[in-house]
Every structure is written in structure tokens, then in C-alpha cells.
Design a protein around this nucleic acid. Structure first.
Lengths: 142, 142
DNA sequence: GTTAAGAGGCTACAAACGTAAACTTAGAAT
DNA sequence: ATTCTAAGTTTACGTTTGTAGCCTCTTAAC
């Protein structure tokens, strides 16, 4: 069974990122941005933009020729989805307490830490005793 | 310029995961495991195993025929590396305080939270005031 | 020594990706 | 109206990935 692709790839994310930063953009603006940021040729950006449209991550607006491109997917939602995927992945990788490892390995500023502590304190109020993680059968570390 | 691949792909991770769980394994064991877990054919597992050997993520041990395969990369280290990649990615996605978002979107048990709080408290002692994140130029949200 | 069965290795092939050239069309300038 | 040019569309091509078939040894059994 061949796979069915609906995933946004790395280079596509870069374009999304640019669009999000700009809010909306013409192809020219995007081409220039991507050329500046990644050194891509115009064609490359065009292709990626097209693929994003096909994947319905970006929409073409404005009836006449210099169209405007806007994100269909908000970055917040994408972020949440990605975060979840990533953690599933890490969980799948059987990393003991995954989030803990991540925090350990990450450089954080005082402000970040304070922020996190606040969030955790809040979360602690409603946290369940146990949480499931679909690991390998027989895996005890997760 | 074509890309230069040294990345371990998703399905390859699955094999790594199995090897890590078993500590070390023969191809037969891996084939059976992957068949059970993912329904893969023997060939698929063999191919992936081979690619992993080429990528030097797994090594062949034992001189005679039923070889033993062992991970070259420890899962802890892989975990750390992955976590960092992932966070770079999230950071690239301009998600305000990325880690916070992740924690927000994740279900955590009381034990997990306590654990995290301990880690954060520890980290707070040595945390720098500011931390860099290489975002898009002009990006103020990161 | 011959053979069978499984381990290991090569080959295959479609989909997806990264990257980009070539072609077409619709407004802008003359 | 004709031409130029930028915007948009098609096509291309080598690589990577997911998935798997088939061939070739090695080792164990007869």
C-alpha cells in the first residue's frame, strides 16, 4: 500500500512561516523573502506555494492577477498539532519522561522558567493520576 | 544542490525502537517484531535494517550467519538530539513560548508535573536572563 | 557430498521531496 | 494594437522513502 500524502514538508513549512510572518503576501513578496532567507530560486518558491495550495494550507485571494496568498491554517493550531505529533514521536521513542528530557536539554531563560512554572501549577489542579502512552508492548519505561 | 541525507526516517525509527526495546536482536526477531507491530513484510524490515546499518545507527555483530544487530546510537542521546531538532522546528514555527504551548496541549499526570516542577526549580538556579532563538528576521514573537 | 531453508544482499518501483527550468497568459507600457 | 514582463502553470529530474520481490550464500540436516 503506497502512502497518501497530506503532510506539509520541511521546505513547505518554511514558506508557511514566511506567510505567517507577513500575514498575507503576493508571490513576489514570497519569492523575494524565500530567496533572501534560503537562497531559493523563484521557481522553487512558486512550486512550494502551489503544493501548499493543493494541500489547502494556503489560499489564493483577489480576483485579478497579482493574487494575494493567505494561510488557511493558523500558526497556533499548526503549532498545537505539531507539538502533539512531536510528543507522540518522542513517546514512541520510549524516552522515559519525554517532556522532562526536553526541558533538561533546552536552554531556558528565567522568564521562560517562571512562565512554565505558572502553567504547571495551573495544570496540576486538574491533572489526572495516570496518563496513557501507546508504547511498544512490553515496554516498561514509558 | 541536492540534499545530503543522514537522517533517520520515520519507519527507520520504528526499527530502532524495536532494537532498543530488545537491546539487541537477530534479523529474524526484528522481522517478527515489525511484522507483529506494523504488519511489514520480511523484506521491508530487512531493507530498513540495511539502511540503518549504512547510516551507522545499527551494527552487525557476531562472525557467523545468524548475525546479531545492536544499536550504535543510544536512545537517550537520540532522544536529546531529536528533542532539540523538534524544538528548533517549533521555534522556527514562531510559536511564542514554544515549550509552554507544548505543555499546555499535553495531558500530564500529577507525577509528571511534580517531576517537571522539580526540574524547573533546579534549572532556575543557573538559568540565563535571555536566550537566543534564530527566528525570521523581523520576527518579534519569538 | 547434496540438498533444503533461512539469513543476508541486490533490485525494483511508485510516491514524495527538493529544486528548478520552460512555457503560457494577463495586465502594463508604448 | 503590439510588445514586454511579471504572475501563474506545467513539466522535469535526481533523490529519498515506503514497501517489497527475488536471488544467493551458509549452515544444518540427511
Amino acid at each position: 500500500m503506497q502512502r497518501k500524502n497530506v503532510t506539509i514538508t520541511d521546505s513547505e513549512w518554511m514558506v508557511m512561516r514566511a506567510i505567517w510572518t507577513m500575514g498575507h503576501a503576493t508571490s513576489r513578496e514570497l519569492i523575494d523573502a524565500m530567496n533572501e532567507l534560503e537562497g531559493w530560486s523563484a521557481s522553487t518558491t512558486k512550486t512550494l506555494l502551489h503544493r501548499l495550495i493543493q494541500k489547502q494550507a494556503v489560499a489564493q485571494h483577489g480576483g485579478s492577477r497579482p493574487f494575494t496568498y493567505k494561510p488557511v491554517v493558523g500558526e497556533k493550531e499548526s503549532m498545537a498539532a505539531t507539538a502533539d505529533d512531536l510528543f507522540d514521536h518522542m513517546c514512541a521513542m520510549r524516552a522515559g519522561s519525554t517532556i522532562a528530557d526536553v526541558i533538561q536539554s533546552r536552554e531556558l531563560s528565567r522568564a521562560d522558567i517562571a512562565n512554565l512554572q505558572a502553567i504547571l501549577a495551573e495544570k496540576a489542579k486538574t491533572a489526572p493520576e495516570e496518563v496513557q502512552c501507546n508504547c511498544l508492548p512490553g515496554d516498561q519505561t514509558c
